[in-house]
Design a binder for these strands. Structure first.
Length: 461
DNA sequence: AAACAGACCAACCGCAACTAT
DNA sequence: GATAGTTGCGGTTGGTCTGTT
C-alpha cells in the first residue's frame, strides 16, 4: 500500500533533483513555457506544482528544522524551493512531519473514525485531532472511499451501535428542552438492557474484545428518557411547530432538522453535535453532496429510518404529545407503559441485531440482564462502573465540551483483520431503505449481518 | 498478456477564519 | 475599522496501483 510519498514514479533521487530544477508545472497549462520569461520578469520564481520530489522534501525538512513550522510563505524565499507556502504546509503536515503514522487504519481507528464522523460530520481535521499520527487528508480519503463503496453495495455506513447512537442523539434533542425527572426504574432497566444488547452485539462483531463498547448508548438512552416526554419522542416523533415556537433558536434549528431533508449526517450545525464550532456555509452546502442525510430521517421514500422508527412504534397518542414539554410526572401506569415500550424496543433491537436478549439469557442462565455481559467476556461484572467508564470514554456529544478526551485506541484485538477495508459505511439515508414497517426491515441495514458486512468490506466491490 | 475498472492516494483549489499592519 | 497576508479546512481532481475479466 505504501508508496513513497511524493515519488509516484520510480526514479533516482538525482533524477528527481534534476527534475525539480527543471520541471515547472505538473499540469503544464498554468505555467506554459512561453510565459516563463514574462513571469520571470514579473515574479522571480515560477511555483511548481504536482508531486514532490525527494530533493524538495529534503529542502522543506531542512527548513523546518532550522526555522520551525509556520511562516510557510517564507520557505520559498529562504530556501529557493519553488513551492507556494500552502503546498509546503500541506506537504509537511501530511507527509514530512514526525510521528506520522503510515499504513492501514487499525480496526480501532476505523471504529473511532465512524464514531467521530457520526459526531462531527465531515470535520476531518477535528477527527484527525483524535487520531494521533493521522492526517485529515488520510481520514477523508479513507472515509470517502469506503462511503462510496458501501453506497454502491447498499450497505450501512455506520456500525449498528453508532447508528443507534445517532438515533438516540436525535431524540435527546427534544429531551434537552424538557424537564428531566429521575429515570424510572423500569426505564433505567430497559436502558441497561439496551446497553447489554449492544455490548453483546459489539462483542460478537469483534468490537469489544479489548475495550468497552465504543458508545455508551444505554446512558444516552437513559438521558433521552430522563424526560417522560422524551420517552414518547424516542418511540415516535413528536409533533413539531418550530417556526412559531418560543423555544430558543437552536431548538428551532433542530426541529427543522427533523422536518426537512437534511444534508449532514448528524448535522454539525445542530448545537448538540456541533461541539461548539460553526459550519461554514460552503462546507455545509457541500456536505449535501458528499454526505447525504444519515440519521435524522426526513420523511421520504428513500430514507432509512433510525431505530426509533425501525422499532415500528405507533405514533404517540394525542395525550402523549400533549404531555411533551410539560414536565408533569405521569402516572405509574404511564411509566410502566414507557418501560414496556422500551422493553419492546429492546426486543426489536435484539431481533434486529440478532443477539440473545438479556431476558432470554436470564432465562437460560437464571440470572439477570447482565448475563449478556458475563457471557461475552466476563469483564463487566460491575456494570455501574463500566457504564461510568463508558461514559468517560465516550466521544463528547450531547452537551459535552469538545475537549472531553476520547478513548485511547486499545491494542487491536478484534477480528484479526487489520485491513483498512474492514470498516466502511454509507449514509443510512441513502441506503435502500428498510421496508417501511420498521423492525423487521432492520435485518438488512441494522442487523448483525450488516456488522459482518462492515467488518468484511474488503470483499465487497 | 492486455484491457478495464475500481481503489487508493497525493496534491490542488477555493473559501473562510485568523492575524498583523 | 479596513486591508492584506497567512493559515486552516474541506471538497475535488488526477495519477498510479491493483485486481479482475
Amino acid at each position: 500500500m505504501e508508496r513513497s510519498p511524493g515519488a509516484p514514479l520510480a526514479s533516482s533521487p538525482e533524477e528527481e533533483e534534476e527534475k525539480a530544477a527543471v520541471e515547472f508545472g505538473h499540469h503544464g497549462e498554468e505555467e506554459a513555457p512561453e510565459q516563463d520569461q514574462q513571469q520571470e520578469e514579473a515574479a522571480p520564481a515560477v511555483l511548481k506544482k504536482g508531486p514532490w520530489t525527494t530533493a524538495e522534501d529534503a529542502m522543506l525538512v531542512d527548513h523546518v528544522r532550522r526555522h520551525g513550522e509556520g511562516n510557510w510563505n517564507a520557505v520559498q524565499r529562504l530556501t529557493g524551493l519553488l513551492r507556494c507556502g500552502k503546498s509546503c504546509r500541506l506537504r509537511w503536515t501530511n507527509h514530512l512531519r514526525p510521528n506520522l503514522k503510515k499504513g492501514s487504519f487499525s480496526p480501532d481507528e476505523e471504529l473511532l473514525i465512524a464514531q467521530l464522523h457520526a459526531q462531527l460530520g465531515n470535520k476531518w481535521a477535528r477527527m484527525a485531532a483524535h487520531l494521533p499520527g493521522r492526517t485529515d487528508n488520510e481520514i477523508k480519503n479513507y472515509w470517502n472511499t469506503r462511503t462510496k463503496r458501501r453506497q454502491r453495495a447498499g450497505l450501512p455506513v455506520y456500525p449498528p451501535e453508532v447508528q443507534l447512537h445517532l438515533a438516540l442523539t436525535k431524540r435527546r434533542r427534544y429531551a434537552e428542552f424538557s424537564p428531566a425527572p429521575e429515570l424510572s426504574p423500569g426505564t433505567a432497566a430497559a436502558a441497561a438492557n439496551v446497553q447489554a444488547a449492544l455490548n453483546a452485539a459489539a462483542v460478537s462483531a469483534g468490537y469489544t474484545s479489548s475495550r468497552p463498547a465504543p458508545l455508551d448508548l444505554a446512558r444516552q438512552l437513559a438521558a433521552a428518557a430522563t424526560s417522560q416526554a422524551a420517552v414518547h419522542q424516542f418511540l415516535s416523533p413528536p409533533p413539531f411547530s418550530a417556526p412559531s415556537s418560543p423555544w430558543p433558536k437552536p431548538f428551532a434549528r433542530n426541529a427543522q432538522y427533523f422536518q426537512l431533508a437534511h444534508s449532514s449526517p448528524v448535522s454539525p450545525s445542530t448545537p448538540d453535535l456541533s461541539l461548539g464550532y460553526g459550519v461554514r456555509g460552503g462546507a455545509a452546502a457541500d456536505q449535501s453532496r458528499l454526505a447525504p442525510p444519515l440519521s435524522p430521517s426526513p420523511p421520504g421514500p428513500n430514507r432509512v429510518e433510525l431505530p426509533s422508527n425501525q422499532f415500528g412504534q405507533a405514533p404517540p397518542p394525542a395525550s402523549a404529545a400533549a404531555g411533551f414539554g410539560g414536565g408533569a410526572a405521569l402516572p405509574d401506569q404511564h411509566q410502566h407503559q414507557n418501560a414496556a415500550s422500551l422493553d419492546k424496543m429492546l426486543q426489536e433491537l435484539h431481533e434486529a441485531i440478532k443477539v440473545e436478549t438479556p431476558a432470554a439469557l436470564a432465562q437460560a442462565n437464571g440470572g439477570g440482564g447482565g448475563a449478556v455481559l458475563e457471557r461475552h467476556g466476563g469483564a463487566r461484572d460491575n456494570k455501574s462502573d463500566d457504564m461510568d467508564t463508558l461514559f468517560d470514554l465516550m466521544i463528547p456529544t450531547l452537551n459535552a465540551p469538545e475537549t472531553v478526551p476520547l478513548a485511547p485506541a486499545a491494542a487491536p484485538n478484534h477480528s484479526g483483520s487489520t485491513s483498512q477495508h474492514s470498516s466502511d459505511d454509507q449514509d443510512p439515508s441513502t441506503v435502500d431503505p428498510p421496508a417501511a414497517g420498521g423492525a423487521s426491515s432492520s435485518g438488512q441495514d441494522w442487523g448483525f449481518d450488516s456488522v459482518c458486512q462492515w467488518s468484511n468490506m474488503s470483499r465487497i466491490c
